[in-house]
Simulated assay, not measured.
Amino acid sequence: MQFTGILPEDAPDPRLEREQLVRSMPIPIMEFTPQPALEFAGFGVTKTGNGSGVDEMSVSVSATLWRNPVDKSDPVNLAELDDTTRRSIEEIPPWPRPAWLIEHVERMRHPMLWEAVQTTWQREDSEHGTLEALLVHHANHILMNQFREELGLSVHDWDSPALTSERVVRHGVHVPIDGVFMSGAEIDTDPFVYAVGAKLPNGGTLTVVVPREHLPYLTLEFVQRPST
């Protein structure tokens, strides 16, 4: 979530529009099972279709990571920030800001599982809608957006070849979903992220991509998010 210019104090919260889009998802949305280390941080939504309706929709769930959830003031809960990000957080402007923007800025102080859990619905089966394809697409999306410096990517490298591929997808893993182990697949070859996913009983697809450094703090189990 990026903002430019000066926002008035009463600027509408963009999360409200996103939540309205989420309500149009044809199937339930998945998220991490409730656990002390995670705090819901927002949705991401993508839709494709034409004048006759939506053909595909994905909803992703982001979460703030608390390495020490018992004491949230513990410095271990702070993220490693570059100088630009740190200045954007610490420099308070001389004009009032919307409460939701202040909340967003404060959240930037902590590690984020950005768009980590994604639920995808498709009206019809397609080649790019297989579990393998969606898992690779999700992993590449996280890598391209969260690990650009580590991968040596410049600002012009958005059309780079895929950073991982379906060749490395391994089947035969069991993914806990709503208390039941579902047959799924994983990508466990990338040095920066771990990815896992499964087809859902309702016809959707769950994919999850998590930075490896955060794995020790997480339980990789998933549940339907309560309806809002």
Rank of each mutant, 00 (worst) to 15 (best):
E56F: 11
S160W: 11
P161M: 15
N50F: 06
S183R: 15
A116R: 09
R212S: 12
P176Y: 07
Y194L: 15
H137W: 14
R107L: 15
I142Q: 07
S62R: 07
V45R: 08
T207G: 08
G49I: 07
D74H: 07
V54T: 11
V117F: 03
E56I: 15
A185H: 01
D10V: 00
S58F: 07
R170H: 09
R97F: 07
E9R: 06
Q2W: 00
S58I: 00
D178P: 02
P111N: 02
E106H: 13
M112F: 05
P191Y: 00
Q20G: 14
D82H: 06
R67L: 13
E91D: 14
P96S: 14
V169R: 06
R97L: 15
E166V: 15
L143P: 07
R15F: 12
T228I: 14
V175R: 05
G51H: 11
V175L: 09
A133H: 00
R109A: 13
R23E: 00
T228G: 10
A37Q: 12
L143H: 06
E56D: 12
S52F: 04
E149H: 09
L21C: 13
T119L: 04
R212T: 12
D178I: 00
P211D: 04
P191I: 00
P8R: 11
L220R: 12
E149F: 07
E115D: 03
I102C: 10
G51L: 13
A41T: 00
R86A: 15
L218S: 01
M25T: 08
Y217N: 10
N77L: 12
W66Q: 07
D82Q: 10
P226N: 05
I89S: 05
L38Q: 03
W100D: 10
L218Y: 04
A63L: 05
V209F: 03
E31G: 05
G49L: 03
